[in-house]
Design a protein around this nucleic acid. Sequence first.
DNA 1: CTAAATAATTGATAAATATCAATTCTATAC
DNA 2: GTATAGAATTGATATTTATCAATTATTTAG
Lengths: 266, 266
Amino acid sequence: MQQKTQQGKLRQKKVVDFHAVKVACKECSLHQLCLPRSITGADLEKLDDIIERKRPLKRNEHLFQVGGSFNSIYVVRSGSLKTYSPTVDGQEQVTGFHLPGELLGLDAIGKGKHPCAAKALETTSVCEVPFENLEGLSQELPTLQHQLLRLMSKEIFDDQELMLLLGKKTAEARLSAFLLSISLRFKQRGFSSAEFYLSMSRNDIANYLGLAVETVSRMFTRFQEDGLIEAERKHIVIKDREMMQKIAGMNECCEEPTDEQSQLFV
Amino acid sequence: MQQKTQQGKLRQKKVVDFHAVKVACKECSLHQLCLPRSITGADLEKLDDIIERKRPLKRNEHLFQVGGSFNSIYVVRSGSLKTYSPTVDGQEQVTGFHLPGELLGLDAIGKGKHPCAAKALETTSVCEVPFENLEGLSQELPTLQHQLLRLMSKEIFDDQELMLLLGKKTAEARLSAFLLSISLRFKQRGFSSAEFYLSMSRNDIANYLGLAVETVSRMFTRFQEDGLIEAERKHIVIKDREMMQKIAGMNECCEEPTDEQSQLFV
DNA sequence: CTAAATAATTGATAAATATCAATTCTATAC
DNA sequence: GTATAGAATTGATATTTATCAATTATTTAG
């Protein structure tokens, strides 16, 4: 028990790679998931020039607040964040979790204001990409424009996947699909897809999935009893992925892309 | 009763404006909602040149199918469509409704394939915008690139609004928010926001909102009993918008934009 | 215009999830 | 290290919504 907690702490430390903060796009391990994809040489340096690397955020620090004016989009380098919106009844509604390589702020371009707030779930570093500069550079570099449009399209696609989830399913389907989604995203970033640490609380998960915390907790318990997962607090091991996919009621869209698919059509 | 049905039919006819089908972007009433926004003169003609106006779709005809290869994005000129995805259990899950001025296909850019199908809910005409040409032209015209990014951002924003809805609320909150959303979208297109016809079935609404048809039907009945709406089949009159907003648990993001806001930052 | 098919409504019951309450576990501050 | 606050779990109950079944209304096809 004590040991597992130790593991958790060790891993949290490993995630924060302060050396990486100053690394150029060229060297960045997220290169393939990020805007620089398919840009090279002098063009890559132009992009590199407009990107600002901010000091890491501590846990619970905000990257931006609701209603804050939109100037930049952000890419997570390490750590993770949640985005959330206030609701009338003074509650907050979690709208997303953001892992390394994922973008934040794309929903703010239209109105010029952030419709949601972003808060770090752990020590987290991000790259800031001033949007005006990015637009300007995209004007010069067709492949950058294309990649930007692709990433925005992916965001739309991912949101619709989630809508499928929230719209229809039972509590167990929602949680199962959530865990598989996190697993897949870790895998795409070069981490294990079978074993990982959740940086968000059960409360955040419940809120995100539109369930009560108690229900989420009970589902974790049930999944363990049924041998689908091992869960020790935030440490999760996927034991029976196939069954979880069945429970999640997944269609082929949600499954892991083959190498072919993941290359897309750059 | 007979009369109301008549009204319904008349309105359906009015929506289909065959003359409009050949009209250039310059003349199109959706100009301000669409890609041509903030483009004029020779540039507008360039855009106009790449846009194809397709023959109107009949009710239940498909604009594109799931898995179909992505070549173009589409703008609804008149009529309406639903998009939907197949689920494992052979059902379909409705992912969106698309009214005049709204775009379809943005979720397909990333993978190059349509993750959902689009089917006309009534006689419907669309503009087809070949995506390669649009990308090329956006490369030339900064304001077009900007508008394209804005529209994609709006799509992301709208999807997240819906997620807020599906994630948390009760059946009555969902239906109320749905009706208010449709109302607002009609208003933005110059139609009445207090009285309109729903082109989709109760089944589609229920599916979209993640509820059983029976539940939706009961909610319509309850809303009428409580004097919130008048509903005669597909004909809806909003009687107490304020109360509906309360029930929907809306935050300021969902409300009608002021003139200021609706100008955005073009 | 009539018959058949489809869509919508209504009622009764079952199932799922939220809520309330209490307890245990974990992390944090001193 | 201990005390305290916060997070997670578990149980009992209430509420909501889905499901099943039947009826009515509307649209479509001939």
